[in-house]
């Protein structure tokens, strides 16, 4: 036994920090790369432009580290298996985000493969963690995720991949913040606390 006190509020802040770091790095990189246009260029294009690549790539790496800590915290302080599984998959997803920062778009197929796996794991973990929040009695948080996913389906129907990617990232950043709120208001059961 190391700690009997739940640190879920502290862990939840890692999610907020991850969202803030990526937002700042995205805005900084797009401000420096004047040729980049939202909805027309892929976000990964920021990782190869001369002026913006450092901001974007280091931003991805930092965001990945904070997101992994957030996923770890959600897995540890979970009240059900869905949340625990979602947290573990979120760590894998964060690892792929770090790899996106380390393997920029000019790596070609390697980058595309990593980005696709990242999106797949992100989608699975978001669904699992939202289902876990629903099972835990936080229906409002899970419901917002449902609305975000439905809206992204609408964007997918009407727009091309670059636009979908842009809105999906905005949706994911918003989701991390609301999932952080869910983690803050969660009351971890004694069993999950004693694991720490």
């Amino acid at each position: 036994m190391i700690s009997k006190k739940a640190h879920n509020v502290a862990v939840a802040w890692f999610g907020v920090i991850a969202a803030a770091v990526f937002t700042i790095s995205w805005i900084s990189a797009s401000a420096l790369d004047l040729a980049w246009v939202f909805g027309q260029d892929m976000i990964s294009d920021l990782g190869v432009a001369d002026g913006s690549k450092d901001y974007f790539n280091y931003g991805c790496i930092l965001t990945g580290i904070f997101a992994a800590l957030f996923g770890f915290g959600n897995a540890i302080y979970s009240n059900n298996k869905l949340m625990a599984a979602g947290g573990i998959i979120f760590i894998i997803c964060a690892a792929f985000l770090i790899l996106i920062g380390l393997v920029p778009e000019d790596a070609g197929a390697k980058h595309d493969y990593i980005a696709n796996i990242f999106v797949l794991f992100a989608l699975i973990s978001i669904i699992l963690m939202s289902a876990g929040a629903w099972a835990d009695g936080h229906e409002f948080i899970a419901g917002i995720t449902l609305v975000i996913l439905c809206t992204l389906i609408g964007v997918y129907i009407s727009s091309d991949l670059a636009m979908l990617e842009g809105w999906a990232v905005i949706g994911a950043l918003f989701w991390i913040v609301i999932q952080s709120v869910e983690c803050m208001i969660r009351k971890p059961c004694q069993k999950s606390i004693s694991k720490v």
Binding site: E139, G143, L146, V147, C150, T151, I153, I157, S158
Partner: peptide, 21 residues
């Protein structure tokens, strides 16, 4: 719980239809 789920689903369908144009 089902009412709340269907409420969110309804909003989702309307939001998706609007986003799709």
């Amino acid at each position: 719980k089902m009412t709340v789920f269907m409420g969110f689903f309804t909003i989702g369908v309307v939001a998706a239809s609007t986003a799709a144009g």
